[in-house]
């Protein structure tokens, strides 16, 4: 990572056979992420998922909000939108409904998606909007310097919880499940292959997909709480994770440096918002209704 930070794109020619480079905007490298940050690792998995999916990349759009993970959209060689804080999901909703041809991916952080954007998250899941939401959960607000987030477990110190966090945190898979998501999974940046597979499945799944990827924030979360560097956090993810596919999401809440349940928790089918609209209008309006998006692939 530090090598990337010090070198220009031209100097990186030696790495041009990297299998994920075709999915990145090479002219935007180096990226802004810190050494040891987990976001880049998830992007690597996402690029592999893009390749493995066999999908037409011209028909995949990525939307981010604001924050460290919010910068992801700008590095991917897709139609990409860096929107406002918390509003990636409603932007993605408009994009998808206006052009149903697209597979729309929202890629953002825990603060962006579940604090300021929490309302949109719940409603998009309730509607079963046909978008895939990837939440990189590093338990903190990175870009602004390490403030408490709705995902911060009880205990650790944050700049706005200087004596340790006393607020309860969200169990994100449980939230997504309860709101109606059709696919819910959690992996960590230790589980790069499983994460890539989940992302591939998510790209191919119709409806509201939620994938949580736990990632270290060594600069702000780990250092402040004396948890070591990025590698130490990945070791923690490795040692304390248990794979439990299909487990009840109410039992996958996270605690401070405690046991982690990972896996694919939910995989079900129900009509998307647009399918429901088309079916309903077809029934009540009959011939007067022309199926919306029918001309799209």
């Amino acid at each position: 990572m530090s090598l990337l930070m010090d070198q220009s794109a031209e100097e990186l020619e030696c790495g041009m056979d990297n299998p994920v480079l075709p999915f990145l905007r090479k002219d935007r490298i180096p990226h802004i992420w810190c050494p040891g940050c987990g976001i880049g690792t998830t992007v690597n998995s996402f690029c592999r998922a893009l390749g493995d999916s066999g999908m037409d990349l011209d028909k995949i759009a990525i939307v981010s909000g604001i924050g460290c993970t919010g910068r992801t959209a700008g590095y991917l060689n897709l139609d990409s939108f860096h929107t406002t804080h918390g509003r990636a999901i409603p932007f993605a909703t408009g994009l998808k409904l206006a052009n149903p041809d697209l597979k729309v991916v929202v890629y953002s952080g825990d603060g962006d998606l579940t604090a300021i954007g929490g309302n949109h998250f719940m409603h998009a899941a309730r509607r079963n909007m046909d978008i895939m939401v990837v939440c990189i959960n590093n338990f903190t607000y990175g870009m602004t310097g390490g403030q408490v987030a709705p995902t911060t477990p009880l205990g650790p110190t944050q700049t706005t919880m200087p004596f340790g966090n006393f607020e309860s945190s969200f169990n994100l898979p449980f939230l997504a499940d309860a709101c109606g998501a059709v696919y819910v999974a959690r992996w960590t940046v230790y589980h790069v292959r499983q994460l890539a597979k989940a992302m591939k499945e998510g790209l191919q799944k119709k409806g509201f997909v939620f994938i949580e990827a736990m990632a270290p924030c060594p600069t702000l979360y780990s250092r402040r709480n004396r948890l070591g560097d990025g590698v130490d956090q990945v070791k923690y993810f490795k040692e304390r994770s248990t794979i439990k596919n299909g487990v009840d999401t109410k039992d996958v809440g996270l605690t401070y440096q405690g046991d982690i349940v990972v896996g694919k928790f939910v995989d079900r089918d129900r009509p998307t918002w647009m399918d429901s609209m088309n079916d309903h209008f077809g029934k009540v309006l009959g011939d007067k209704y022309e199926t919306y998006g029918a001309h799209h692939g």
Partner: peptide
């Protein structure tokens, strides 16, 4: 908040 940004997503979707 959602309404005023969803419309903008729709513009970039062509509407």
């Amino acid at each position: 908040l959602a309404a005023s940004i969803a419309i903008q997503g729709a513009v970039w979707g062509g509407q």
